[in-house]
Design a protein around this nucleic acid. Structure first.
Lengths: 213, 213
DNA sequence: GGGTATTGACTGAATGTTCAGTCTAGAAAG
DNA sequence: CTTTCTAGACTGAACATTCAGTCAATACCC
């Protein structure tokens, strides 16, 4: 029986995605190492065996889940920046997306995922490569943004690469504090400090948060 | 079995320390979640049962091990800075101790430990409190260093707290890249970038690494 | 059409291993 | 002889992965 909307629904791809999303949710909740296949299966409403059917091993499942999450986060960010034209505003948006949470839909709090991503990178080469590529892409996003801003005359002369490394490191470091709920660093303060560095180094005036979308 | 001359050696405290050191070594090697009591026992040359005898549970052992490692690191750093008088040199030493490895004895590469510390903080309150205290102490070290430098007229006027948060976040972020062996960020470069931020914000001249100790 | 192989999706019940923590009893020390 | 240490053997539970097979749909042939 064709149930109209539903019947093309159960393709393998969708199943996979469903499981990846379930995996992400569980990882956020229990942490990477404590995530059991059974948890993911339960959350996805299926059996452990099916999870293994789709992903040969647990590590493969979890690794792919991390990649999936990072991609989603990055994509959401890109979309977010796309709505803005000035380079200064764009980089502000970039900083904001690290700290000012997703009011919208998808991108859940990736903070905790990052901590796991880093810790697992040490020993799982697959995970390490996810992280590596992600970081590179991120730094490139920053540096090309800087270059664009310089061409447009909005930013002063700084080495874009150095700036990208510095800024991404700062954002990571601040993100850790946020993720771990350090009482002395609120998201707002992190945002503020991030923007102060940005505007200082790039040499443009910045006075408080611009109107949010 | 009394080995060697030093047979007064085997007090309970020394046993504990021996085990803590063993635990740290194993954590560095296998990661926190993968560290087994048996590993620690083997490395310490005793039995798993004895490990449990001294530390009621595995988590207690590992948590204490992290605390022990952080304390050792911090103490080594303090000692290192003590040999220097000018505030600028001191803060340089502080940055250096994050990136330029321990040529000396004890303080092993705590990088990997940090990643585990962060990841575990999310779910183990004990670990979280170790981290929290450690971070606070670290930021205070920075900010009082800044204040001292300002009093001495070496540094310009910045908000010491803001600076401490910013710098410690930057150092953490850079440390991650170093720890994970990111090819585009060598320890030297991290040090350089760190010092550029420091000298820029504190307003003093800095031209390359001072003579090492 | 009607049968029949083929394949992909899926499951429940094992299997086997890995470990944290316990138990018992022996050795050292005081 | 009593307390503190120490180790070997053991237990019980938790889990990843395997297995043997079911079910439904599609393709292939007459």
């Amino acid at each position: 029986m064709s149930e109209r909307a539903g019947d093309v629904a159960d393709t393998a791809d969708q199943r996979r995605e469903q499981m990846l999303r379930a995996a992400i949710a569980v990882i956020e909740e229990r942490g990477f190492p404590e995530t059991r296949i059974a948890d993911v299966a339960a959350r996805a409403g299926t059996s452990p065996a099916l999870v293994i059917y789709y992903f040969k091993t647990k590590d493969q499942l979890l690794t792919e889940a991390l990649r999936y999450a990072e991609d989603a986060w990055y994509e959401a960010g890109t979309r977010r920046m796309a709505g803005v034209t000035s380079a200064a505003r764009r980089i502000e948006e970039l900083v904001a997306m690290n700290f000012l949470v997703d009011l919208e839909g998808e991108p859940t709090s990736s903070w905790l995922l990052w901590l796991d991503l880093w810790a697992q990178s040490v020993r799982l080469p697959e995970v390490a490569s996810v992280r590596q590529k992600f970081d590179e892409r991120w730094r490139e996003t920053i540096s090309s943004l800087v270059l664009a801003g310089q061409v447009a005359g909005e930013f002063g002369p700084v080495n874009a690469d150095d700036f990208a490394v510095t800024l991404s490191a700062l954002l990571d470091g601040l993100a850790i504090q946020i993720a771990l709920g350090d009482p002395s660093i609120s998201p707002d303060r992190a945002f503020e400090l991030g923007m102060r560095l940005v505007s200082g180094q790039l040499g443009f005036e910045w006075s408080g948060r611009s109107a949010a979308r």
